[in-house]
Design a protein around this nucleic acid. Sequence first.
DNA 1: GCGTATCGTGCAGGTTCGTGCAGAAACAAG
DNA 2: CTTGTTTCTGCACGAACCTGCACGATACGC
Lengths: 252, 252
Amino acid sequence: MLTAQRRAWILDVLRRDGQLVAKRLAAQLDLSDDTIRRDLRELAAEGKLQRVHGGALPASPAIADFSVRRHVATEGKTAVGRAAAALVQPGQTVIIDGGTTAQQVVRHLPPDLGATVITHSPTIACELVSHPSIEVLVIGGRLFKHSIVTCGAIAIESILQVSADAFFMGVTGVHATAGLTTGDAEEAAVKRALSHRSAETYVLASSEKIGTASPFTVIPMHEATAVIIESSTPDVQVAALRREGVELIRAD
Amino acid sequence: MLTAQRRAWILDVLRRDGQLVAKRLAAQLDLSDDTIRRDLRELAAEGKLQRVHGGALPASPAIADFSVRRHVATEGKTAVGRAAAALVQPGQTVIIDGGTTAQQVVRHLPPDLGATVITHSPTIACELVSHPSIEVLVIGGRLFKHSIVTCGAIAIESILQVSADAFFMGVTGVHATAGLTTGDAEEAAVKRALSHRSAETYVLASSEKIGTASPFTVIPMHEATAVIIESSTPDVQVAALRREGVELIRAD
DNA sequence: GCGTATCGTGCAGGTTCGTGCAGAAACAAG
DNA sequence: CTTGTTTCTGCACGAACCTGCACGATACGC
């Protein structure tokens, strides 16, 4: 990855998330902390961002204020997304679901990652435009507007034509006995089909979803490879999932 | 390979990939690093690209390019979009192309219009979420990141399964004799396929496109039902199109 | 045909740039 | 105050860069 490109990406991240941790960025890009620090220092010198201890904030504080507030609201989802993104290996083919948590997965993929992403979400597809080395395959079909994903026969048919190494699935309910559930039957069917076309299925479980169940079952709990949970998930819920023999990945 | 040819190719690669590593390019073309560096240096001097340590980036980054273009929807594009939207009758099935002008078409559709929209653009699909009575069908396929539309065999295959009353087509060149053209061969093929599946084809021709031609022909001029032009289009251009027997719709 | 000018290319050299590491200084929190 | 973390400084090394020069190819005029 070119240096200039990396710096542009840093500013991008900052605009999007409203904040940025130097150390984490270094780990994500597999570079030394010093290099990132140097980048931040120089971008700060150019007035493109505001340097703070441990990371950076946007140059204009007004925008920062708003973005940070929004960011704080979804801190859990961000962490889950980051943990999920770390599971993607270069060269793999992965399926990414629709939804805000899945969007966080995309945002934490290394910018120069070479991989193939399959998605039935136009939002996710648009988001991936800024990753030059990721090949994107969009699953067509009827647009289900509530979640902004494609559904229906056409989608299912297309899904049967693909295979992937991993599927990052968003759901609305993660319940020890009710399994993984969502609010729409069509959507459940599509998620199920995607899961069956993938070697591994990782569930993106931000805290508000754990312990709840929605009307339609996607897959039983044991069919998931692992559930990615926030580190702040209450112990009671964690224990309940453990009892079902589900593998858990804690996102910090 | 001729030098001029090589330089054109370099710009092509850059447009496609959004980045370029000097060393890799040299190896690929079996030339010394110096030669490539010289090319890059001189292209940068001409303002055709942005030179950075290790390689080059587009003069105006593709993504920034798109988002800027999106925000700077000129008055002309808005007018063309409004005129196009007025052609859609309730109950019809229409195909809407990708691009900024097409986006304006969507923005001017009546919010309660009952219709079916087929699109190969994730951007357009997202935009249509706010129209509750429009049924949206997304064409899947490989994502072509430059224009943010799906392309390739999968897209073509899906397109052959649908039919529509009208296709609102965006192009980059509208020329009396060269016809309707665009900058990418794949994209041209997809647009052509969409046009052939539709009873009517309306061309969205904001003023900067008229009188210009891009490398790849989509369809000859006479295959278009009508070309929607800005009212401010120079008379010379209008006359040239009239001579070809094209129907023109003026957008005010 | 022959010399000359021009151009594109590759190579040698010295320079600049980007990166990582070690140690000292600054900072935040207990 | 103490401790652990983050930051900066200086340094070293390799990669990328630019300059100047030499070589071969083509074009042009004599």
